[in-house]
Simulated assay, not measured.
Amino acid sequence: MYVTGEYLMKSLFFRLYLWGMSLLASLRPIKEKNIVVLNGSGRSGSNGYLFYKYIKANHPDYDVTLVEPWPSSHLSWETWKKIGAAKYVITTHQPFKARRAQINIQFWHGVPLKRMGFMAHNTRYRANKRNQKLWHKNADMVTSSSDLYETLMSACMAIEGKKYQKLGFPRIDYIDQPAIAKEKLLEDLFKTKDEQAKIGIYMPTFRYELEDPSVMEMIKQGNFFAFLGFDPYELNDALKDNHQYLIVKLHPYEMRMFDNFNSQCSNVAFLNNNYLFENNLDLYELLGDTDFLITDFSSIYFDYLYLDKPIIFITNYLKQYEKVRGLLLSPYEDVTPGPCVNSQKELLQVLRHPDDKQYQNQRFYWRELIDEVEDIDSCEPIFDYMTKNF
């Protein structure tokens, strides 16, 4: 069974473990220049990990510790001592402190498109009330990018407005600054060279929530789009004809279902966390090398707007997802600045000409709604604000 961080946080025994370890860790004296980053986002657009890298590179006088994965019941006592001694605790999911005197800076992990917390169709009121108390008690500052972001987050989590600061998100600082050259990425993942290459990336949301075993079975069999009548060889031929290369980055739960990460198709490559960890990279440090995005209900599309590149939306399970969990913004076709496709046939048609300029104005419109941050970068303003105000 794949155990998510959210599942752990709901477990009574795990909450008791956190309480006990926090109590012991809080006996350590707080050190003013100690920062701990509790990274629950892996390496897929992690504000925590990228902020950690920034501090390590630009503020060596601060002692910053990266804790991942978080939450976890397998942390060493040495790690807990670091958590207990930190003045600043950075989180990407639920706010957390080992002691009241600490400062919690909450980054979260994306502009929400999907319903969460109080707004979701598949959550329990009791759990939502417990989460509300955690946000009220532990979060000292919640970074934000716009009024729209704050409205969506507060609708779901009941966060008080005074906690927000429009300072942006660390992940956005890195989205248009690829850490490796496009040619190297092509060689690493596809073992080829192509001066005409157009690299796309497919990033769907967590489809296990659909509670549909047939969808999980299709994904397990290699049908990563979960299309009816999926033909990987037809897809590969179309990609080759267009000089396109598709990176497939699935949710960790779905990646665990594959026995072999090696694609049988020359122009399709699965990106797993091993590549990112081995190269000390976050996924967002590669997005600048890509030419288009394919997604469904994932909030990555809001971030990809900063690149002003084509986005294709997969809608084959839209109605099902709206029923099981729900979306915060609708109708879906009006809030997605790109073509919506429901089948492989429709996808292949769009891939012939993905850079359709008719959606450029829509991309600009939605970026303006989600981005009201005055500074170009966010890492240094966040660091400056938290160290001067707390």
Rank of each mutant, 00 (worst) to 15 (best):
M1S: 13
V3H: 10
G5A: 07
Y7G: 04
L8D: 12
S11E: 15
F13P: 00
L16S: 11
L16I: 15
L18R: 05
W19F: 14
W19N: 06
G20P: 00
M21N: 04
S22P: 07
L23G: 03
L23Q: 07
L23E: 06
S26I: 01
S26D: 10
R28C: 13
P29E: 12
I30E: 07
I30N: 02
I30T: 15
K31I: 10
K33G: 01
V37L: 09
S41M: 11
S44F: 05
G45A: 09
G48A: 06
Y49H: 09
Y52F: 15
K53A: 05
H59W: 02
D61R: 12
T65M: 02
V67N: 04
W70D: 04
W70H: 05
L75H: 13
I83V: 14
I90W: 06
I90K: 08
T91D: 01
T92F: 00
P95G: 10
K97E: 11
K97A: 10
K97I: 07
R99T: 07
R100Q: 13
W108L: 09
G110R: 02
G117E: 05
M119E: 14
M119A: 15
M119G: 02
H121Q: 11
N122A: 11
T123R: 08
Y125K: 12
A127G: 06
K133G: 00
K133P: 00
L134V: 14
W135K: 02
N138Y: 14
D140T: 09
S146I: 09
D147F: 09
L152T: 04
S154L: 02
E160C: 01
Q165T: 11
Q165H: 10
G168T: 02
F169K: 03
D173E: 10
D173G: 13
I175D: 12
I180D: 04
L189Y: 07
L189R: 11
K191I: 00
K191R: 13
K193M: 02
K193E: 11
D194H: 10
A197E: 01
I201D: 09
M203N: 05
F206H: 13
L210W: 11
V215N: 12
M216H: 07
M218F: 00
G229D: 14
E234M: 03
Y245N: 06
I247W: 12
L250Q: 13
L250T: 03
Y253Q: 11
E254G: 06
R256E: 15
N260A: 03
N260E: 07
C265F: 01
C265D: 06
S266N: 11
N272P: 02
N272Q: 14
N273V: 04
Y275G: 10
E278K: 12
N279E: 04
L286R: 10
L287I: 02
F292H: 12
L293C: 08
I300P: 08
D303Q: 07
Y306K: 08
L307I: 09
D308S: 12
F313P: 10
K319V: 00
E322Y: 02
K323I: 00
V324A: 06
V324Y: 07
G326P: 10
L328T: 06
S330W: 04
P331S: 07
D334C: 06
V335T: 09
N342D: 15
K345F: 03
E346R: 05
L348C: 08
L351I: 06
L351F: 08
P354D: 08
P354C: 04
D356M: 02
N361T: 14
R363V: 08
R363L: 05
L369T: 01
I370C: 09
D371H: 13
E372A: 12
I376G: 03
C379E: 06
D384R: 15
M386Q: 07
K388S: 14
